[in-house]
């Protein structure tokens, strides 16, 4: 199969711990199979700077926590056929959303002002503006497949991705759950 015929595959890392990507790497030798089946066009694991057009499958790890995240998602949604919320942070906002009950201001104050005696200041330069509330991916863009799990197991990821590549609709909740 030539590179032109292969499905174009991408992954994205928003506000999360990268554990879902680690679990992805845990697929071990199947990664070689996958590499044969798809063309990986964008990912924190590869060296591509700009999210390309005409992507078939994008896995999104992490919750939406900044204005930059929203802009990325809108762009990626427009360029992706099947968009997958990958892991609990993308699906539920999970641990990153644990700051929500307190409000952004209180959290920033606690982290950057109250507990930093040497140089207390809230960073504003070259860092993206944080949203007041961390939200799951589907609050911003349409999501086609949800894979809960913290992280989803390598077996779950393999099963879902291979079903999708085979043109089937995976029954994800038979494989995983929140917090799995």
């Amino acid at each position: 199969m030539s590179a032109q015929d292969k499905p174009r595959f991408a992954t994205l890392w928003l506000d999360g711990c990268s554990g879902c990507h680690m679990s992805f790497l845990d697929m071990d030798e199947w990664l070689l199979d996958l590499a044969g089946q798809v063309e990986v066009v964008y990912s924190p694991l590869v060296d591509a700077k700009e999210f390309p057009d005409n992507v078939d499958i994008t896995l999104i790890e992490g919750a939406v926590a900044s204005r930059e995240d929203i802009e990325k998602l809108l762009k990626i949604r427009a360029r992706t056929k099947t968009l997958i919320a990958f892991g609990d942070c993308a699906v539920t906002a999970n641990v990153p959303s644990m700051r929500n009950p307190f409000g952004l201001e209180a959290v920033m104050k606690q982290v950057y002002l109250d507990s930093n005696a040497i140089q207390p200041q809230v960073p504003t330069v070259t860092v993206p503006e944080l949203l007041d509330r961390v939200v799951p991916v589907h609050r911003i863009v349409k999501v086609d497949v949800y894979i809960p799990g913290c992280p989803p197991s390598a077996a779950t990821i393999k099963s879902v991705v291979s079903e999708l590549l085979a043109g089937k609709k995976p029954d994800v909740m038979a494989l995983t759950r929140f917090g799995a």
Binding site: V91, P136, H138, R139, Y146, M173
Partner: peptide, 13 residues
């Protein structure tokens, strides 16, 4: 089969 929550999280303190 609830794989995501469509309603906004209320996130009470």
């Amino acid at each position: 089969g609830m794989d995501h929550v469509r309603y906004p999280y209320l996130n009470p303190q």
